[in-house]
């Protein structure tokens, strides 16, 4: 079965790939993912704020104690400057190591916080050998003074800026919380993005009612999260020629197939692989091929987008029609 696909201009043997996750921190897991036939590997994000925080932390709580006392010019050893980095070096070195070890494309991922961060780190990731770059807009507006248009304009400007600075394909990883996602998607494509990744999962803190504190929580995705993504894949893939990847909620061959039918060119897997190991990718691929075979598809491309807003039998289900009908059917029970 021909499962081949094109994602971000990259020719891939199939759409299943390791999504942004801690898997890339462990070269053994990376090797196992490659052995399992992953179509690509997406690095986890380089977080500009995290790097900045650590640098400033070091500056205020290590450097600042230097040359303050007669008896001690410092309180921690000064490691070799060339080796000790509180910047992106470790990330870039790992990207480089993975590139050296695998033959599939490696896609960098970046979460910037400032213009110079987006720009500077994007260039570095390209220089480190990434085949493409995912711009991970992990942004939560909390300031009522910021208009939604401004949020979107900022994202589009950022993509334009990065596009001018790097040559590798760009994808933008979005959250579902935009007023007009198709409009934004069009703008992002116009600004130079080749693809979109749907969707970012915001980690939601829990409330500790005893301590009156927020506690960070990290939970793996479930298939229940897929439907949101299917809807927007279907809407976006039907309206513009753009590479789309799904991330979040793909746990079974049928989940993957649905995403492809909704229009995904790439299927990113994280939670499923963290739960079952990278080898599951091979199983998924085989079962996907088997399903297509059993259902007499000639290739994966035949299924891609077959259920998007343009091709599905009743597109109203992706719009309000679906909403109204469900509510009515609920009332009727």
């Amino acid at each position: 079965m021909d499962l081949s696909t094109r994602y971000l201009g990259l020719s891939l043997p199939h759409p299943l790939m390791v999504g942004a996750s801690p898997i890339v921190d462990d070269l053994d897991l990376v090797r196992r993912a490659e052995d399992a036939g992953t179509a690509a590997i997406v690095m986890h994000s380089l977080f500009e704020e995290q790097l900045t925080d650590e640098q400033l932390h070091h500056h205020h709580h290590v450097d600042a104690h230097g040359l303050t006392h007669a008896e001690a010019h410092s309180f921690l050893p000064e490691p070799p400057k060339l080796q000790y980095a509180l910047g992106p070096d470790e990330y870039l070195a790992q990207l480089n190591r993975i590139k050296e070890r695998v033959s599939c494309p490696v896609i960098g991922s970046l979460n910037g916080a400032t213009d110079h961060g987006w720009l500077g780190y994007a260039k570095l990731i390209e220089q480190a050998g990434a085949d493409a770059l995912e711009l991970n807009i992990y942004y939560l507006p909390t300031d009522p003074a910021i208009e939604s248009a401004e949020v979107e304009r900022h994202a589009v400007d950022m993509v334009k800026m990065v596009r001018e600075a790097v040559r590798i394909p760009l994808a933008v990883k979005l959250s579902p919380f935009y007023s007009s996602l198709p409009h934004l998607a069009h703008q992002l494509v116009s600004a130079g993005a080749q693809g979109l990744v749907l969707f970012n999962r915001f980690y939601e803190p829990d409330i500790d009612v005893e301590e009156l504190e927020l506690s960070p929580r990290l939970e793996l995705s479930t298939s229940a999260e897929l439907n949101l993504r299917l809807r927007w894949l279907a809407i976006l893939s039907g309206s513009k020629d753009i590479s789309l990847a799904v991330t979040g909620g793909v746990h079974s061959p049928l989940d993957a197939l649905k995403a492809i039918m909704a229009g995904a060119d790439g299927v990113q897997l994280v939670s499923a692989l963290l739960k079952r190991g990278p080898e599951y990718l091979s199983t998924l691929r085989q079962e996907l091929a088997d399903w297509l075979d059993q259902h007499e598809y000639t290739s994966l491309s035949q299924a891609r987008g077959s259920m998007n807003i343009k091709h599905c039998p009743d597109p109203t289900h992706y719009g309000r029609g679906n909403y109204l009908r469900i509510l009515q059917s609920w009332r009727g029970r």
């Binding site: 070091h58 980095a85 910047g87």
Partner: peptide, 11 residues
Amino acid sequence: TYGKKGSEVVR
């Protein structure tokens, strides 16, 4: 002085 351990500190 700060080079690699603090591009943001430098900036």
